[in-house]
Structure formats: structure tokens, C-alpha cells
């Protein structure tokens, strides 16, 4: 069956078992089984509308903000079922951060954007907040660029800076898992390189799941790759194996560019 079996050194952070998902009566995910290893980068690839973004959103239950969705199967985070009634969705989202494709910064200052999450958790002292803001911005390599203009409106930053700011905003909540939905889709090549480098560094501390339709990007940044097609998980494995020696014909056709 499909599951990456070669990652003996990395324990599983998230285990997805027989996940089905519906928008209304339309089923968009069919029987997904996937293990996401801790502190590794897992890339989800596939053509548009293959369900990879929807899948990503189920990992921290962001799908619930859309009305009329249904889900069956289990998703275990560190062995805990995240859909168990006793699980607090707010606590879950603090452990599993997400950065959206067009994750526009909030229309606030740079500082207030990063401090948004910590403030929600009741951190009020200026020094504590400053420390978190500085650390988060340093993690995404933005600190040196913006440290003198933290009070500036976040929308005055460049596109690449805004995207890194969004990642910093997610990191400030101190999650274990970071979900990135097409983080470089709207960026120019230089900013993309920057983001890719950043993702590479993030896996030292975080479990990263990144959705991309850019196969070169998946090949460059990820350790493991999962290929989605028409709501099904076709193949998973170490990235170099998937790209050099895919086992499934559809995977082969996709990565060689025969369909998008």
C-alpha cells in the first residue's frame, strides 16, 4: 500500500487513516492513508483540484469554517485523534499552524501582526511580546530587514517579505507543525528562493507540510513527497525516490509533465 516506509529514523508526527472528505454531497478525498514524519518536510503535490489543499486544511480542522463539510476516518497528532469531541480546536490550531496561499498579513503594523497570536494567549507585557516578535522574525530571516520599522503597516512590505511575515506570525504561536499552502505561488523567483531556504531551515524545529504544484520546488525542499490525483493519494515515498523512480504510472506522467 501507499505509505512511506523508509523513514525509520523519523517518528510519525501525524498519522492519517482512511480519510474521506465531502463538500456537501461531493466527495473530494477518498481513503487517504498517510504518515507524516516529525521534523521533516513533506511535500504534497498534484494537479489543481486534486484535494491536496483540502487535505492540508483537515490537518488543523480549518475545513470546519466552511459550512456543509463532512469527514470520516481518523487523523492522529502525536497519537491523539484531533477530531475527538474532547479536543479543543483552538488548542489544536495553536499546535498546528497554517500559512495560506494568499496569506495576506493583517492590516496592522508588522509588530502587531506577529504579536497577534501571543496576545490571544494572554501575553500582554511589552518585553515578552518584543522578544517573541524578534525571535519569530529572526527565524524567517526578516528581522534585519524590518527591525527599524516594526510600527510600519505590514502591507507596505514587498510580497516576499509579506509571505515571510505570515510565516513568522504562525511561528510566534510556537506550533509543532507548520502547514504551508503554496507558500511561494505568488512570488517572484528571488523571493521564492528565499522562502525555500527558509523552509529548509524550519524543519530543524518543526514538522513541515508544504502544498505545491511546482514539482521542482517539491524536489528541492522536501524529504518526502505525496502525490495526489483526483482526491486520491496515489503514491508516497522519499522525495528522491518519487522523482527518480516513481512506482505508479500516474505519478510518472505527472512529474514528467504529461498532464497538469
Amino acid at each position: 500500500m501507499v505509505s512511506g516506509g523508509q523513514d525509520r529514523d523519523a517518528p510519525s508526527k501525524i498519522v492519517v487513516d482512511e480519510l474521506d472528505f465531502w463538500y456537501g454531497t461531493r466527495q473530494v478525498l477518498h481513503g487517504i492513508n498517510l504518515r507524516i514524519p516529525a521534523r521533516r518536510i513533506t511535500a504534497l503535490i498534484g494537479p489543481s483540484n486534486c484535494g491536496k489543499s483540502t487535505f492540508l486544511h483537515t490537518l488543523n480542522r480549518m475545513h470546519e469554517i466552511v459550512a456543509d463539510t463532512r469527514l470520516s476516518g481518523t487523523i492522529l497528532l502525536d497519537g491523539q485523534d484531533i477530531h475527538h469531541p474532547a479536543v479543543d480546536v483552538v488548542a489544536l490550531r495553536r499546535r498546528v499552524g497554517v500559512v495560506f496561499q494568499h496569506s495576506n498579513p493583517f492590516p496592522k503594523s508588522v509588530f502587531d501582526n506577529v504579536a497577534y497570536g501571543p496576545r490571544l494567549q494572554g501575553i500582554r507585557q511589552r518585553e515578552a511580546l518584543s522578544e517573541i516578535v524578534q525571535r519569530s522574525l529572526q527565524q524567517v530571516g526578516l528581522w534585519d530587514e524590518v527591525k527599524d520599522r516594526l510600527a510600519r503597516h505590514a502591507w507596505d512590505l514587498s510580497g516576499g517579505q509579506q509571505q515571510r511575515l505570515s510565516i513568522a506570525r504562525a511561528l510566534a504561536v510556537d506550533p509543532d507543525v507548520l502547514l504551508l499552502d503554496e507558500p511561494a505561488a505568488a512570488l517572484d523567483p528571488r523571493a521564492t528562493v528565499h522562502i525555500e531556504d527558509l523552509i529548509g531551515q524550519l524543519c530543524e524545529r518543526y514538522t513541515v507540510v508544504v502544498v505545491t504544484h511546482n514539482m521542482q520546488q517539491a524536489a528541492r525542499v522536501s524529504h518526502f513527497t505525496a502525490f495526489f490525483y483526483e482526491g486520491r493519494l496515489i503514491e508516497t515515498g522519499p522525495t528522491n525516490r518519487i522523482f527518480s523512480n516513481p512506482r505508479e504510472q500516474q505519478t510518472d506522467e505527472y512529474i514528467t509533465g504529461r498532464f497538469h
Binding site: 469554517i65 490550531r93 495560506f100 497577534y116 496576545r119
Partner: peptide, 25 residues
């Protein structure tokens, strides 16, 4: 919507989202 979604994704409760990221605007 991105203001609501972005806030919820950072672990805000629905009311926190409205209070800090919807009402001010």
C-alpha cells in the same frame, strides 16, 4: 474572509477573531 481565517488559523476563538480582527475594521 482572510482576516477571519488567518486569525482562526492562529488559534483564536471565534469571539477573539471578531473582537480583534473583524470589529476594528
Amino acid at each position: 474572509a482572510f482576516l477571519r481565517h488567518g486569525s482562526l488559523a492562529l488559534g483564536a476563538t471565534p469571539w477573539q477573531t471578531i473582537r480583534y480582527n473583524v470589529l476594528p475594521y
